[in-house]
Nucleic acid binder design. Structure first.
Lengths: 199, 199
DNA sequence: CCTGACAGACCGACGCGTCGGTCGAATCCC
DNA sequence: GGGATTCGACCGACGCGTCGGTCTGTCAGG
């Protein structure tokens, strides 16, 4: 048998890497761990990826793109800048809740790994921040919120989201979704949006 | 000569460790680096500290205590819950700006290092969060802000602060202090405080 | 002379990456 | 058609650098 579960080897390695990195973190995870988890071999690993570092970078890109895509499609079906902002918020929370591994890697394990990784992390962060920023600017233009430093706002929002999600990842606690309404209210208040009575 | 610069060896090692960890991060920093930077030896290092891990943990504790103490004294001289909150905010920002190494270690390098470190990090985070929370609760009780989930708020605030500071640490940009007013406005708005015209 | 602070050579484990090898499938030659 | 040959995906034992930690030695001071 060439492949198990019909998945090509490369994908199996990638999937295993997500699991292992999420569980043990970048440094504690050995290539050997990934190899074992994927049921392949060291040879296969280095056949598809030039290094441990590169597979992690690829993973960060892929996972970020996945979330980004989810956000974009969710946003597309909403009308009005503020509605789009709220939609994006919802998707981010939901995605994090459903795919903890993904969130763990992007928000926790990818931090403080040195310049190469930090660069990628900042790149991803600013991609997201720019989406938020764009719609905030639009909302300001439409008069839904006062005009303000949207760069700072998107940074602060990313940080707040990050922390709440990370805390939930580590300590567990109530389902993340239940915190959405209050978190949303908090964030919207922070930009001076008239909280539209909820629902 | 027993000591250089009059500082006892243990302190020299500690100081060097701060510098090295801040520059290279936990994993990239070798014990050898710290030894060299401190002008001491491996023997001295292991004479005072049982392991690399332990010195990092000690550092986290010390640095956190330093900030905490600064916050507490600053808070003591303010009257009224909201004033105390604003004071704490100011001190945190100023301390981060003045001691980048400290901030880098606490906010960036200490993330994702495994369970032992994560535990310490959470402990520190919740120490700070509890200070914020306590005064927010008091402010709510005094009627300055509506009552709300202050646990969530303090988490979100920590995250927002963290991100803004971390971003500044890495990418530089305008002095951190200049961002205080807007950041403060943002955070206060988020809890529904009437922004009291500042200063 | 003894203790404890310190020096620095050394050790051993660990983990990334390599490299010669296997094996099945596709292609070629008769 | 079928044996020979090529090719690339894949295997896994090993090499070798790195790095935390140890251990013996030295020396100053009491």
């Amino acid at each position: 048998m060439a492949h198990q579960a019909g998945q090509p080897t490369r994908d199996r390695i990638l999937a295993a890497a997500i699991d292992v990195f999420a569980r043990k973190g970048y440094h504690a995870a050995g290539v050997e761990d990934i190899v074992q988890a994927s049921g392949t071999s060291k040879g296969a690993f280095y056949h598809y990826f030039p290094s441990k570092q590169s597979i992690f970078l690829i993973l960060m890109d892929d996972l970020a793109a996945l979330v980004e895509q989810g956000v974009e499609t969710a946003i597309a079906s909403e009308h009005g800048a503020m509605a789009k902002v709220e939609g994006a918020l919802r998707i981010v929370i939901e995605t994090a809740a459903e795919q903890r591994d993904l969130a763990k890697i992007l928000l926790v394990e990818a931090v403080g790994l040195g310049p190469e990784f930090e660069q990628k992390r900042l790149e991803i962060h600013s991609r997201f921040a720019r989406v938020i920023q764009r719609h905030l600017d639009r909302a300001a233009h439409e008069g839904d919120i006062p005009s303000q430093d949207t760069v700072l706002v998107s940074q602060a929002w990313m940080g707040a989201l990050n922390e709440v999600i990370a805390q939930w990842l580590v300590s567990g606690g109530r389902p993340l979704r239940e915190r959405l309404p209050e978190l949303r209210a908090l964030l919207l208040r922070s930009i001076g949006a008239k909280t539209g009575g909820g629902r």
